[in-house]
């Protein structure tokens, strides 16, 4: 739910990183936090208690500076991927202006990717949104992994996840940072374009 302050010409929007548990959502935010120091407003808040497991959500506010005469701020969130946190996942998704779906390239996680995308579709519906209309980017993460670990080809992931959606997608490695910035930038772009259509914020 974007917040506009027309007097000060400020926009604040919300982007949610969604996806199955362990696909690399937190790692995406960690990389952004490390790399875009200038734009990161505060500390990154990682609300976890069990090692690297996101129990609740991560939160990273950023300032992107002036775009078309408007001061643009964005708040990045991750959802907890585990099945059992469905009610907090819904809460975090609520009011999202844009979504990055982080899919796991491990072949062994193929079905989990699809179930999570389906869960996203369902939860968006409950928020009165359509997965076909919301600004959405797919990220195929962990492309750096190779060798003995079976990973899916991009074509296969496209076929599984993006056949109907036909949204922009990025191969990525959240660990090395490859594709992380591009994913976020594209998502921001789509989000701002959508907000412009709806609210005509730009001059």
């Amino acid at each position: 739910m974007a917040v506009f302050n027309l007097k000060n010409r400020e926009i604040e929007c919300k982007i949610v990183y969604y996806g199955p548990g362990r696909s690399g959502k937190t790692t995406n935010l960690e990389y952004i936090f490390k790399t875009y120091k200038k734009q990161v407003a505060d500390q990154m808040v990682t609300i976890d208690t069990e090692g690297d497991r996101t129990l609740f959500f991560d939160f990273l506010p950023m300032g992107l500076g002036k775009i078309k005469g408007c001061d643009v701020k964005v708040q990045l969130y991750t959802v907890p991927g585990q099945v059992q946190y469905s009610s907090t996942r819904k809460l975090v998704l609520k009011g999202a202006d844009g979504i990055v779906f982080v899919a796991d390239s491990f072949s062994i996680r193929r079905e989990k990717n699809m179930l999570s995308l389906k869960d996203l579709d369902q939860n968006l519906k409950e928020c009165g949104l359509s997965i076909f209309r919301v600004p959405l980017i797919l990220q195929y993460n962990k492309r750096d992994v190779g060798g003995s670990i079976p990973i899916m080809s991009i074509e296969m992931m496209q076929n599984d996840l993006n056949k109907q959606l036909k949204v922009p997608y990025y191969p990525a490695s959240a660990l090395t940072g490859e594709g992380v910035g591009a994913t976020l930038k594209e998502c921001m772009k789509l989000t701002l374009v959508r907000l412009q259509k709806e609210f005509k914020w730009a001059q």
Partner: peptide, 18 residues
């Protein structure tokens, strides 16, 4: 060896069931 390597990778990634 290769199966064990795979298992280890999943473990370190938190994919315990896998």
């Amino acid at each position: 060896k290769s199966v064990l390597r795979e298992a280890e990778t999943y473990r370190t990634q938190g994919l315990f069931n896998e």
